[in-house]
């Protein structure tokens, strides 16, 4: 790792002030950033640790929505969302392993927007709102392709607001070495619509499978997907873990399983 200093502010305001410094970068759980720093793929002069900011570590019910602070760890979401939003709690409980879940945060995951990250699929399927220190951004506008988001320099994710679906499930086909999803599908059924968010598959990052959303809104059953046009293999990631065709094939398979499992 290159040399840098670490600051540990206690509030969002202090963090934003610290982030004003040249080449300063936030660190939340560090479960993505520390491996990146070890590979010398980042060269910040200063890390601003968000992990000591209590005001970012919460889950709370806001009417029909669940508001999750950017500093909430995957472990907190797995435990504390279990009653209000079991589909999301189960997604969080399958990220990495227990030690990763005790450090990694939803804010870090949403900010990083790894094309194989789990949370973005739920955010897209539910039509979540990404809340930052300065504004609110709809999930559809926030995720802008692999590792690309609407965040500006120095802007931090302070929370994510999820409308709570009537039923939902996340199905993750694990890439066996990393346990990231090779393909992961989040299905969310609301009173008036269905959302289908797909991660791990596309070269363009997380996507919504809109044809499936329409078919499932008319008939929420795995059979409804039989004749639906699937996302094209030509847009899919191909690597040593799976071909583009294989990933494309997994999308309907995992979507059907998620529909069958939705609770």
């Amino acid at each position: 790792m290159y040399a840098f200093e670490i600051e540990r502010p206690k509030s969002v305001d202090e963090a934003l002030a610290a982030l004003g410094a040249e080449e300063a970068q936030p660190i939340s759980g560090g479960q993505t950033l520390i491996p990146t720093l070890k590979q010398r793929l980042a060269m910040p002069s200063k890390l601003v640790s968000l992990s000591g900011i209590d005001e970012l570590r919460y889950l709370r019910r806001e009417g029909d929505a669940l508001m999750i602070g950017g500093g909430a760890t995957h472990g907190m979401v797995a435990r504390e969302a279990a009653t209000d939003f079991p589909g999301l709690a189960k997604l969080a409980g399958k990220i990495g392993d227990p030690a990763v879940r005790n450090r990694g945060t939803i804010g870090g995951s949403i900010a990083n927007n790894d094309p194989s990250a789990c949370y973005p699929s739920a955010a897209m399927a539910c039509g979540a709102t990404i809340v930052t220190n300065s504004r609110e951004i709809a999930a559809d506008e926030y995720f802008q392709g692999m590792f690309m988001t609407a965040l500006e320099e120095g802007e931090i994710v302070t929370g994510v607001r999820f409308p709570i679906p009537q039923a939902s499930a996340y199905m993750k086909f694990e890439q066996i070495a990393s346990r990231f999803p090779l393909v992961g599908v989040f299905v969310a059924r609301f009173a008036d619509r269905v959302g289908v968010g797909v991660t791990g598959a596309s070269n363009n990052g997380v996507l919504r499978w809109r044809e499936a959303e329409e078919a499932l809104a008319a008939n929420f059953s795995p059979d409804a997907l039989a004749d639906v046009t699937a996302p094209r293999a030509s847009d899919m990631i191909a690597d040593l873990h799976g071909t583009a065709e294989y990933r494309a094939h997994l999308i309907p398979v995992m979507t059907k399983r998620a529909v069958a499992a939705a609770e």
Binding site: I6, R8, G30, Q31, I34, V100, R103
Partner: peptide, 9 residues
């Protein structure tokens, strides 16, 4: 994982 947290944290 102590390899994935800084001492300062």
């Amino acid at each position: 994982k102590a390899c994935t947290i800084f001492a300062a944290e």
